[in-house]
């Protein structure tokens, strides 16, 4: 966060640099640097290189020029995967944001049981995506699941067997896991709003609804951007959940970008096209992060940090 270093820090730097051992700190960063280069940066370059090769995952790697790119870009499956990714992203954002906001407001005003509520709300975040997917698969099974057990026909649908339902289930499961987390983010955002603003509004005769839209919502601008960034960029990486819950199905209805890459690479053994998809995944992620950063006018790294 170099750009955000407080001025005080920069000023004192001149004083500190009088010490002769200035170079002696750098070595402390070397292990982390080497480790990250080896398994983060080299693979990032590697994936671009591999997208211009042909490799089945076992044998030799041959250069193949633009073959993979031509295959991938002319394949309607790519457009479909992008569309599914976008749908999951947009729907889970649209479902989670208003609910998280409401629950966050609730948590912020609820002082007595806040601690207990926070504990319970947090539990879904502890489950692995695999555990979560398995649980919901059992819960929604049309023959042995909740609907059959309760005898309610409405719940007895083939949840994971129909295109739109499967997508809806996916969005719900994602929300089940992450709404609590985003509510906690909103909760701390709401608690930062000066109480005096509400008092002033009250004196001016503003109603509750007006207060919400004129004070709470605008004051939460950065919180909303932070939370949305985490949701949107995070939704690109839903792999485990989709893989275990639907396997991309029914048909290709939930075959999002990350899953498409995995299936091409590790199931169809076409590492070249899979690498091209991976490059697209990186580009989409970067573009979204930059877009949201521009929207907020705030350093992306800062919003990343806030969410964490």
């Amino acid at each position: 966060m170099t750009s955000l270093a407080p001025p005080a820090l920069r000023r004192s730097s001149t004083e500190a640099s009088t010490g002769g051992r200035s170079g002696s700190v750098s070595w402390l960063a070397v292990p982390a640097f080497l480790m990250f280069v080896a398994f983060g940066i080299v693979p990032l370059i590697g994936v671009l290189v591999l997208s211009f090769t042909q490799w089945d995952g076992i044998g030799d790697i041959h250069p193949a020029g633009f073959d993979s790119w031509r295959t991938v870009l002319s394949d309607p499956a790519l457009v479909h995967a992008l569309w599914v990714t976008f749908l999951i992203m947009a729907l889970s954002w649209a479902f989670q944001t208003p609910l998280s906001l409401l629950i966050g407001v609730y948590l912020a005003t609820q002082t007595r049981y806040r601690e207990i509520l926070a504990v319970i709300y947090f539990v879904p975040l502890l489950l692995s995506s695999a555990a979560l997917a398995i649980t919901y698969k059992a819960l929604l099974d049309p023959n042995f699941g909740l609907g059959a057990g309760l005898g309610i026909p409405l719940l007895q649908q083939d949840w994971l067997g129909r295109d739109n339902l499967a997508l809806g289930v996916l969005v719900f499961v994602v929300s089940w896991q992450f709404i609590p987390f985003h509510s906690l983010i909103y909760q701390s955002g709401v608690r930062q709003i000066p109480k005096a603003m509400y008092e002033a509004a009250e004196i001016d005769g503003a109603g509750r609804l007006r207060q919400f839209f004129s004070i709470t919502l605008p004051q939460l601008k950065y919180t909303i951007i932070t939370s949305s960034t985490l949701m949107v960029v995070g939704s690109l990486t839903f792999f485990d959940l989709i893989f275990v819950l639907t396997g991309g199905g029914p048909g290709d209805a939930t075959r999002a970008l990350a899953l498409d890459m995995y299936k091409r690479g590790f199931q169809a053994n076409l590492m070249g096209p899979a690498s091209a998809i991976a490059v697209i995944l990186v580009l989409v992620g970067l573009a979204l992060a930059l877009l949201l950063r521009r929207l907020g006018g705030k350093d992306a790294s800062e919003s990343q940090m806030e969410g964490v």
Binding site: T237, A258, M261, G265, S275, L281, V282
Partner: peptide, 15 residues
């Protein structure tokens, strides 16, 4: 921070 693990899994596999 912006690099998703999924995106680099193929080269990691190779390494």
């Amino acid at each position: 921070l912006a690099i998703p693990l999924q995106a680099v899994i193929i080269p990691v596999f190779l390494i």
